[in-house]
Amino acid sequence: RAAQGRAYGNLGNTNYLLGNFRKAVMFHEQRLLIAKEFGDRPAERRAYSNLGNSFIFLGEFEMAAEYYKRTLQLARQLKDRAVEAQSCYSLGNTYTLLQDYGKAIDYHLKHLTIAQELNDRVGEGRACWSLGNAYTALGNHDQAMHFAEKHLEISREVGDRS
């Protein structure tokens, strides 16, 4: 049964990479059931994250947000700061797709805090870029300028010309 769980996860991932997102969801849901059966929380966490990603490409952003929230919850329980940061980044982007810029900003700020804590300059740059765009969408140009300047500074530092 445990091997079956891993096989479902691999089938979900393979279908995802092939662009078969409906099938990917089906397999990751099966993987999730088995992870829960075994009380395997890291596997449960992976399934949530994989499901969130699949729903993004199905255009079902509300569903994606729900799964990313569960990913975030488990990442916190498992004390995995890197995954917590990634979940916040995903949630920020998902709420941007949903055009809920207030929530997008909340999550991008959370991502920024963790990226700074982990000394992840690339992550920090992404967070600033995203925040600049979200504040622009809200018409808050002072904050947008602040984050655009930080984005430029970090991009120069990491040598990202684009």
Partner: peptide
């Protein structure tokens, strides 16, 4: 509003490009 929507797309597009290849391995 339309212009702002276009502006916000670039950072999200970049994220989605990375997401395409992002799977959590067993």
């Amino acid at each position: 509003v339309q212009r702002m929507h276009l502006i916000q797309v670039d950072s999200v597009q970049r994220w989605m490009e990375d997401l395409k290849w992002m799977t959590e391995c067993e």
